[in-house]
């Protein structure tokens, strides 16, 4: 599996899109820090971008890479390698190279601006960790979608719709249900509703750490009331981890059954 991971990782590192992705974060970091010299404010702005963009990139790269490497997969399947190692190895290759671009791309500008001397170092690392989680989650899900759909167009469609649902539609539905069921106690409902969406969860996680109640919104406030900051962070991390493990498990199951 390590060998497959290595080949996928370096294959992607050589591709143009990884450079574009890396350059984008580099530019974003520098521009943000140039516009507001306060590092912790830059972290908040960055969060809003990262939380939407990272899942989108994870989704697109995941599904694209799966379809592009179909030939490679077929070649490997005839070799004495475990099936699960092929698929999990490729998935980890994509997810690590994306995370690598994210961390290095954002890390350089913040390093230049002296992140180590500021108090925001913990917040910034949390942002990177969440970004990493989101990459692993959405790449895994889009890989699974690719694996389940022979038809490229369909696979792409489902993957994009999934991202759109999680990033945009989910919040809309959530707000509507809050308004419609105003008369009822909605604490538990909204708590679970936010656990069920990794993007919401990441937002809450970062805001909890930053302790900005004004930005936290309804779910964030409930989250903090329910778990407290310390436990809130631990639980949110745990659920994010679960969001990685479950799709990886699904990939494994699908890979064992599929015919080529």
């Amino acid at each position: 599996m390590i060998k497959i991971l290595k080949y996928s990782f370096f294959d992607l590192m050589r591709s143009r899109w990884s450079y574009v992705y890396f350059a984008f974060y580099l530019l974003l970091g520098f521009v943000l820090l140039f516009l507001n010299t306060d590092v912790s404010k830059a972290v908040i702005t960055l969060m809003n971008v990262v939380i939407i963009l990272v899942p989108l990139m994870g989704t697109l790269f995941g599904v694209m890479y799966y379809y592009n490497s179909k030939e490679f997969i077929e070649l490997l399947l005839a070799q004495p390698i475990k099936r699960t190692s092929i698929f999990i190895g490729q998935y980890l290759g994509v997810a690590t190279s994306l995370t690598f671009s994210l961390i290095v791309g954002l890390g350089i500008p913040f390093l230049v601006y002296g992140i180590f001397k500021s108090d925001a170092i913990l917040d910034f690392s949390l942002l990177l960790v969440t970004g990493g989680f989101l990459t692993f989650i959405f790449t895994a899900i889009s890989f699974y979608i690719g694996l389940s759909n022979e038809n490229k167009i369909k696979g792409f469609g489902y993957a994009i719709v999934f991202w759109l649902f999680m990033a945009v539609i989910y919040d809309g539905l959530f707000l509507i249900s809050l308004i419609v069921f105003e008369a009822y106690p909605l604490d538990t409902f909204s708590l679970f509703a936010s656990l069920a969406n990794p993007i919401d969860l990441s937002r809450i996680l970062i805001l909890l750490k930053l302790d900005i109640s004004a930005l936290m919104g309804y779910t964030g406030a409930i989250f903090q009331k329910f778990f407290g900051t310390q436990w809130g962070v631990v639980i949110a991390m745990g659920v994010l981890l679960l969001w990685v493990i479950v799709p990886v498990f699904l990939i494994r199951r699908k890979a064992l059954k599929k015919d080529f």
């Binding site: 030939e71 490679f72 077929e74 070649l75 005839a78 004495p80 390698i81 475990k82 099936r83």
Partner: peptide
């Protein structure tokens, strides 16, 4: 999967990266 060490396979359509 280990048994595939003893098999060489030529696929019908040569699909390579």
């Amino acid at each position: 999967w280990k048994y595939r060490n003893g098999i060489d396979y030529l696929p019908q359509i040569a699909n390579f990266p």
